[in-house]
Amino acid sequence: MTEIVDPTIPVVKNLLLLDSEGKRIAVKYFTPDMTSVAAQANYEKSVYAKTARTNARGEAEIIMFDDVVVVYKFLGDLMFYVTGDQDENEVVLYSVLQAFYESINLLLRNAVEKKTVLENLDLVLLAMDEIVDGGLILETDPATVATRVTMRQDGDGSPMSAEAASNPGLVTLSQAFGSIKEQVARSLLK
């Protein structure tokens, strides 16, 4: 794990996707302070304990404890968390959180629940990979993240369709992309 040396760069300590009982669905830790599985499990446990009873369904919520700030949002039976240092700009973390849950929402076509997330775990893992790279924020626009996950090139959409037809395994991904455009348009109209 390479560390980001310049202290002025905003750093995301981890992205967590837990289910409604606090169990891991997908997590990614970026900083060297929590590398052991036990430390991570402890951390997830305390985050869950402190947030489970709050209402983060409408607006994303925020909590500060130990030496971290956590922004989080509950969607369906899932909980999305983004952790940063206690001195981090809360609004920056919030934009990462938005990218996190919005992109997954786009990829899963609004069906954000534990079952679909597990069935499409590859998409979720790829989305996390596209948002944060080793703690550094890579992209915060949900639609851009989603197109990159589905391997659509920014701006053009043709070369993949032939392959998709010949390969039934790709259908879900292409469909996902189709719905992304739709939803982006819808969210803009809102």
Binding site: T2, E3, I4, V5, D6, I9, D133, G134, L136, L138, E139, R148, D154
Partner: peptide, 17 residues
């Protein structure tokens, strides 16, 4: 392409140490 430039810049930030 933004995605290419972004990737290499992000990589460079990690490698710069």
């Amino acid at each position: 392409s933004a995605v290419v430039a972004g990737a290499v810049l992000a990589g460079a930030i990690h490698l710069a140490g």
